[in-house]
Design a protein around this nucleic acid. Structure first.
Length: 584
DNA sequence: AGCCTTTGACCAGCG
DNA sequence: TCGCTGGTCAAAGGC
């Protein structure tokens, strides 16, 4: 189903060399390393990591000890710790200007099959969507979830959950998310080395650095770095699109579009169907990208009140985003340029930054499946599990729906403490610990090039929620096994506010040992405590990783900010945390 | 005229 | 095989 235009020329990479394992599993590239190259690269990456980032840039591996295979994968590409710290500081400083309060309003989950943006209960995302086009109910005390399911499988979900009772108005307005790809790219460059997702970056988007290295992109970094969470997504975003959009200017707002017209995420969509799904009175609309031969579709679910409750994207755009529609409306491009210049110089205006963050999110999510979706046109001759992937896509979709229905939030974090910092105070009242080890295995089974005998499988990154199975015919057998301490299996928290019965249940995601699932029960009947510190979780004795996060109150409103928790725990690496101002 | 939405019908997967 | 369900098609109509 893919008559796709040839991919745009990829700029020369300035990125570190691909990790060996990555290149093993990407199936990209014709030249396969020999076994010695393979092995030596794997192990040499240890030292590389130490020199270049210490297995996750020091953040991932604060201690000594054996470097895990995963660390090899990640750390090999990491920045030096100091550099990371600098970036984190920059993010925080910038974020300080815009976020009214903290809380892991949005978290980006792992590439584990399910990456989820979350907006915790009671925390209004209006700061994020503080714009004419994005309207959240002021009284909303629900659990809005921006859900991104990003599987290695190429199907992702970008969903916005809302409270059916309180309602959540969400609208993709025209031009509201005008973040340029350069901004995203700049963020990527600034952030990519932090994230486990870098694996995917290099797997799928090997050319970010070149784009981001432009001076313009660097300029954008200052204004966009506070949306580093987006960068995490951009890390795995559609690089092709990024290249296309490199000259794109930021956009201004327009009058909010009707609530039931969600589609303006920069692309043009044609509605081709509508269904009422079982278990919900809400209709689900089906949209196709109107660009010829573009396979991207999206489903938009509505709530009873007509508001959009979920947006699910499928596929990857094989074209650039259409020109700004507003240009047709006669809006002065000069004005836009002015605005953009101002933004570049002084930082994006808060409101717009918020919107752009979302836009970037949306757009980048649209590209998440780059290289994964079987529709994306990236041929992978060694890929053998299309059927399996297809099956998993379905599962992911179901998972998403469950997530929305059950207010389940899958989020990767360094510790439970991060999950607690959602704007409310929680008291831990129970925990179930399963003190076992889980073995993660990484295996490469292969045979000589000229043999027709068994061609083995490569299996990687169970802990990251994705499995790569690539038939290889030119490798010797390699096998790695490693065990990881498991996170405590279950923790139970209660909201400490008097009379509030909201409970939070944190558990490890079975599908991804590095991710945890947070289940909220009930709704807060109060606003989040004002000015509370991130570490004020009552009764929580767990060590905090918040040292790098600025208190929410220290940030001004209308700004989306990302802070990153450090990676003190090797097994718990956050992709990033976006902080959104809380609705006042 | 072109693009889009609407909507009933159809199809495929699944239990 | 049948019914359910989700997804898609395509004709009709609106803007």
């Amino acid at each position: 189903m893919s008559s796709r235009p040839p991919p745009p020329p990829r700029p020369h990479l300035s990125l570190p060399p691909r990790s060996t394992a990555e290149s093993l599993f990407t199936g990209v590239g014709d030249a396969s390393p020999g076994p010695l190259t393979l092995a030596s690269a794997l192990f040499s990456s240890d030292s590389d990591a130490d020199g270049g980032g210490g297995g996750g840039g020091g953040s991932a591996s604060s201690g000594s000890g054996p470097t895990s295979f995963t660390q090899l994968l990640i750390g090999n590409l990491s920045q030096p710790p100091q550099q990371q710290q600098q970036q984190q500081q920059q993010q925080q400083e910038r974020g300080r200007g815009g976020v009214a309060r903290a809380g892991p309003a949005i978290s980006v989950a792992p590439p584990a099959g399910a990456a989820v943006f979350t907006v915790p209960p009671g925390l209004s995302p209006s700061g994020l969507f503080d714009s004419p086009g994005l309207i959240f109910s002021p009284a909303m005390v629900c659990t809005p979830i921006l859900t991104l399911l990003l599987p290695k499988l190429g199907f992702f979900v970008f969903a916005l959950a809302y409270s059916p009772l309180r309602g959540l108005n969400f609208n993709w307005n025209h031009g509201g998310f005008g973040m340029s790809h350069q901004q995203a790219l700049a963020q990527v460059t600034a952030q990519a080395s932090h994230s486990p997702l870098r694996m995917f970056d290099h797997i799928e988007q090997p050319s970010f650095s070149a784009a981001a290295s432009s001076s313009e992109a660097v300029q954008h970094m200052s204004s966009a770095a506070n949306m580093a969470g987006m960068s995490e997504m951009a890390t795995i975003s559609n690089n092709d699109n990024a290249a296309f959009h490199s000259a794109e200017a930021s956009q201004r707002y327009q009058v909010p579009a009707p609530v039931d017209k969600p589609a303006d995420d920069g692309y043009n969509w044609r509605k081709y169907g509508q269904k009422v799904v079982k278990g919900s009175d809400c209709p689900r609309s089906y949209y196709k990208c109107t660009h010829p031969s573009c396979p991207v579709k999206k489903k938009v679910e509505h709530a009873e009140d007509g508001q959009i409750s979920e947006i699910i994207y499928k596929g990857k755009h094989n074209h650039q985003r259409p020109p700004n529609k507003r240009a047709k409306d006669g809006n002065s491009s000069a004005a836009e340029h002015n605005e953009q210049s101002n933004d570049t110089a002084s930082g994006l205006s808060g409101v717009r930054r918020d919107q752009e963050a979302v836009y970037a999110m949306s757009e980048q999510l649209s590209g998440l499946s780059d290289g994964d979706d079987k529709d994306d046109g990236e041929s992978r001759p060694n890929e053998v599990d299309n059927g399996e992937n297809d099956c998993k896509r379905r599962n992911i979709q179901v998972s998403s729906q469950k997530t929305l229905t059950e207010s389940k939030i899958i989020v990767q974090t360094t510790s439970e403490v991060d999950l607690l910092d959602d704007g409310y105070r929680w008291r831990k009242y129970g925990q179930k610990v399963k003190d076992t080890l889980r073995q993660r295995e990484v295996k490469l089974h292969a045979h000589g090039t000229n043999t027709n005998e068994h061609v083995g499988e490569a299996k990687l990154g169970i802990a990251y929620g994705f499995e790569e199975k690539r038939k290889r015919n030119d490798y010797q057998l390699l096998e790695f096994c490693e065990s990881y301490d498991l996170f405590p299996e279950r923790s139970y928290y209660k909201c400490t506010f008097a009379g509030c019965n909201v409970r939070k249940h944190i558990e490890r995601a079975s599908s991804d040992p590095k991710a945890v699932i947070t289940t909220y029960e009930g709704k807060h009947n109060h606003e989040p405590p004002v000015g509370r510190g991130s570490n004020q979780n009552a009764g929580n004795s767990a060590p905090s990783n918040r040292s790098q996060q600025k208190g929410p109150s220290s940030m001004s409103s209308n700004q989306t900010s990302l802070t990153r928790t450090d990676f003190s725990n090797n097994n718990q690496r956050p992709i990033g945390v976006l902080q959104f101002k809380r609705e006042e």
